[in-house]
Design a binder for these strands. Structure first.
Lengths: 224, 224
DNA sequence: CACGAAGTTGACCAGATGGTCAACATTTTT
DNA sequence: AAAAATGTTGACCATCTGGTCAACTTCGTG
């Protein structure tokens, strides 16, 4: 199981692939690597790791396969790079929950941010979901380390709020899961939603979702 | 796009594969086909359609590849068969929501059933999720047909309840999505949950989830 | 038990896939 | 402008994958 290195750490071994070089990047490197990550996101989010092919990714990135492999020597390296980028985006709103803020406002802001993420980054959401459904083989470490610590920290914030009578007193982890599940659903299960509500655009559905989500979750969470 | 045929319909063309024969099935057929579907569920739910290999499925079913292909001529046929079985299981609790029942009780029963499905059939849940994340290429028809009609019917039940002041008045489709998302989360994202709550068993987590889920959702849904 | 039907498999095939490499092209540096 | 570094690619290879087939074994039934 290859661990996820942060982009700033040096590569562990000699590696001619350009994407792993820590020294200065050329203009072309930066541009091509960005295109590759975008193409890879598209393909991996649709087919999962094993279902995606390097040829597909190269085509999506608008370059030849050998050219792509000049920047990322292995399919696996591309996957780790997109996954790392995605994980960072996924985590950010969660970190921003402010213990000092008003519970109702903080939670409704968090719900709004997660819903907005489902609108603007559905592929990232699906890539993440796909990795987890498949047992999170590549990011187990991060989930059990960084994410777990973060959840514990935020859970204790929710506990404080509960102790102060500001929200109801139930296991905060499950509250967090509820928010994750309901908001990510609009990205991960978009094709199901589209089939069920064919007359409404994806954007409209997410606009509509905001009301029911906040009203049910906040009504359910806040004391009367 | 191959449509999903129901198991009782005759095959569309001459087909020597045993699984598609409508006439009498031998003892061996029934047994082997069941083993294949179980093995296929295991593999497809873990790797998705493209990521799964026929060899893997054969191994999981405890037989040789040619032997497996004697019962299902194509990988695609196996996939459709498991998916069909899964879809039926997935739909059943939803159909059982009773318009004449008490809203609070009906909804809490439905939540309990879905949560129980996540406990007893996590692979089915993940297979279904995987298919939908990948754009539902095989079951678009069913989603836009049967499921859509079913959702419309149940949505109008919720609307009736809302009109009678028995639940709050928000778009019922989004309420349904909330219940689906929160309950399925415990199967689909099990590996994430396990990483975050490593001390609790899967079964315990689902036991714990029942309280927060019903209390938040019902508090959020029912009038004060 | 005999005979046809059903079930099983090793060997095989064509195409797809991840990855390499030598040769060539372009960009950057001196 | 020449040299060095960086970027690009067609052709190629080993392996994997879905699927076939002829030969063989086992099963059900009169």
């Amino acid at each position: 199981m290859t661990p996820l290195r942060s982009a700033s750490e040096p590569p562990p071994s000699p590696d001619t692939a350009r994407a792993s070089q820590t020294k200065k990047r050329t203009r072309i490197q930066a541009e091509k690597e960005a295109r590759i990550l975008d193409g890879a996101l598209e393909v991996f989010s649709r087919y999962g790791y094993r279902g995606a092919t390097v040829d597909q990714i190269a085509a999506a990135a608008g370059m030849s396969k050998p050219n792509l492999l000049y920047y990322f020597r292995r399919k696996h390296d591309i996957y780790l790079a997109v996954l790392r980028r995605t994980l960072a985006m996924w985590l950010q709103p969660f970190e921003e929950i402010d213990a000092a803020g008003d519970p109702a406002e903080e939670l409704s802001k968090y719900i709004a941010k997660k819903l907005e993420f489902s609108r603007t980054n559905p592929q990232e959401s699906r890539l993440f979901a796909s990795e987890i459904i498949q047992g999170a083989p590549q990011i187990q470490g991060v989930l059990g380390g960084e994410l777990r610590a973060l959840v514990e920290r935020k859970a204790s914030v929710l506990k404080t709020w509960a102790a102060a009578g500001k929200i109801i007193d139930v296991d905060p982890c499950h509250l967090i899961f509820m928010i994750w599940a309901t908001t990510q659903h609009y990205a991960d299960f978009a094709s199901q939603i589209e089939a069920i509500l064919p007359d409404r655009s994806k954007d409209d559905v997410i606009d509509e979702a905001y009301g029911p989500l906040t009203s049910v979750l906040l009504r359910g969470l806040l004391p009367r």
